[in-house]
Design a protein around this nucleic acid. Sequence first.
DNA 1: AACGGGATTCTCT
DNA 2: GAGAATCCCGTTA
Length: 201
Amino acid sequence: MSWKKIKPEFFDQPTLELARNLLGKILVKETEEGTAAGKIVETEAYKGPGDRAAHSFGNRRTARTEVMFGPSGFTYTYVMHTHCLVNVVSGGDLNPEAVLIRAVEPVEGLELMRRRRPKARKTVDLTNGPGKLTKALGIVKADYGRPLHEPPLYIAEGRAAEEIKTGPRIGIDNSGEAREYLWRFWEAGNPFVSRFRKGID
DNA sequence: AACGGGATTCTCT
DNA sequence: GAGAATCCCGTTA
């Protein structure tokens, strides 16, 4: 399978639009074990200084958030408990924003994913969560700072989602008013979306 | 140098 | 539904 790499200019759009437009794109990781790729079906936007749920809230600039202060289109990996999460840096130079990839649908390397995720009983469990998809695709903290328009870790062209749903972000209940923002986006009805709520999807 | 909490996942009840 | 696993990072001393 050959994927068409995205143009670097793709990342130069407002973070909320980028979060929507990343749905349907392909996230590809090449390793010595082989290539694994998934269609992005769920994202969350994290907006800079004014977003209490963002690591860059209040312009907090540390070794961890440093890449968010650089240009858009680079990888922000972050370790949560025992898992690695992956973000796309957005917002442009000196504007620390990012889009979290929360779920993908496998499109290449299914067997490789199964080997990497022995605990997944069903196929959907391979990639229906932010910590799961990084394990399945082989994305690790060392990918921090890599450009997302070229191998080994890149975004490729896909097909735009037919219908996009919106809701509050997950797991940020201690973030004050920010937990109300409808900055989570997903492809309607896709079984790989991490969580469903009655009345929303 | 010590402490506390988190953008999660898995297992068991 | 609750609790553990288990670790990096930011804050405080």
